[in-house]
Design a protein around this nucleic acid. Sequence first.
DNA 1: TATGATTAGTCAGTTTCTTGAGTATCATGC
DNA 2: GCATGATACTCAAGAAACTGACTAATCATA
Lengths: 189, 189
Amino acid sequence: MALRHAVLAALLDEELSGYQLAKAFDLGVANFWHALPQQLYAELARLEKDGLISGREVVQDTRPNKRLFIVTEAGLAELERFTASAAKPSSIRDDLIVKVQAADHVDPATLIAQLTERAAFAQAKVDLFGGLLDRMRGDRSEEDFLRNGEGIGPYLTCLRGLAFERGNLDWCERTIAVLREREAARATR
Amino acid sequence: MALRHAVLAALLDEELSGYQLAKAFDLGVANFWHALPQQLYAELARLEKDGLISGREVVQDTRPNKRLFIVTEAGLAELERFTASAAKPSSIRDDLIVKVQAADHVDPATLIAQLTERAAFAQAKVDLFGGLLDRMRGDRSEEDFLRNGEGIGPYLTCLRGLAFERGNLDWCERTIAVLREREAARATR
DNA sequence: TATGATTAGTCAGTTTCTTGAGTATCATGC
DNA sequence: GCATGATACTCAAGAAACTGACTAATCATA
C-alpha cells in the first residue's frame, strides 16, 4: 500500500485529475514513484471511498468533463501515520543492470547499444529535472530557496531524481567505455 | 519476466543452491535485483522445467541436502535473447522519497529520524560494496582489472550499486541538513 | 477531409510480488 | 539441557502491478 501514499503526497500541492496524475506518474515527471493510469484510477476510487481524498466534478465544454481531487483531513492524517511507519529499504530493479551482470557471457555490441539508449534517456531526464528545479526555485539560489522557500518537498524529491539519473548516465558511459576498450584489446590480440 | 533473467545472470558465475541465491537476492549483496526466497524457489522450479537451468542434488551429512543449479546452453541463449530485447527504463520506487515529497505537510522530526536510519543503511551498503569490489579486483588497479580481468559483469553491476547507495547517502544527509536548518530558522522566528 | 494525437476515463485478465505460516535437521551459546 | 539461529526448503493466499483492449469527444496537421 505505498502507491496509496504516493498519490496522497502528489495531491498535497495541487488539485489534480486522474488524467493529470497519470501523466505525472508515467515516464516523465514521476521522480518519486511510477504507476500506470489504470492503477491510478483504481487507487483514486479507493482513496475517495475511504475518505482520504475528495473529488469534485469540473464541467468542460471543449473537453470531456473531469474530476479534480484534493487530500482531506483524514488523508493528511493517514500520510502523517505513514511517514512515522518504518520504510523498507529501496533497492534497484533494472533490466539493464541484469544484462550487464551477464556481460562476460553475452555479445558486447548488443550491450553497448542498450547502454547507449539508456544513456540518452537518462540525459533527457537530467535535462527535464534540471528545468523543473529551475522553475521551482525561480530567481532564488538553491541555498536560499531550501532555507526559506515554500514547497520544498517536491524540490527535494526532484533533487533525488536528478542525482539518480546522473548516476545512470555516468554508469552507462563508464560501462560503454570499458566494453569498448576490451573489444579493442581483443581485436589487436 | 525479469526475475527469470536475473536468476540466470546470477547463476552464470557460480553454481548456487536456492538457499544461497535467496541470501544473495535478499537485502545484502543483491545490487542488481531483489527477491524473496519463495519467489526464487518458484522461479528455479520454472527455469528447470523449461530446461534453462539444470540442478544436481548434493548430499550432505551435517546439513540438509541441497540442489545446486547451473545455466544450460538453452539458458544462455535465452539470456542472449533477453539482452537484445528492449529494456524498460528503471524508475525509483521508494517509500522514503514519498515521505519527503510530503515534507511541507508532515512532522520534520519524524522525517529526520527516517532519513537518519536510511543514511545508516546506505552507509552499510557502501562499505559492503566497497569490500566486494576490493575482493573482486584483488591487487590490481580498477583500470587494469576492467581492461584485462575476467568476470567484469558482477564488478560493473556492483559499481552501480555502490553509486546508487552513495547517492542515497548524500541525499539523505543533504535533506536532513535542510530540514534541520529550517527547524532552527522557525525556532528563532 | 481523413489521420493521428490529446483529453478523460473504464474493464477484464494475468503475472508478479509480498505476507505469513510451516517442516526438519544440526550447531552454538548460555 | 534448552533456547536460538543457521541451513534448506515448501505451501497458500492476498495485494500490487502490468498487459491489452475499449469508449468518446475534440484539436491539430497534412
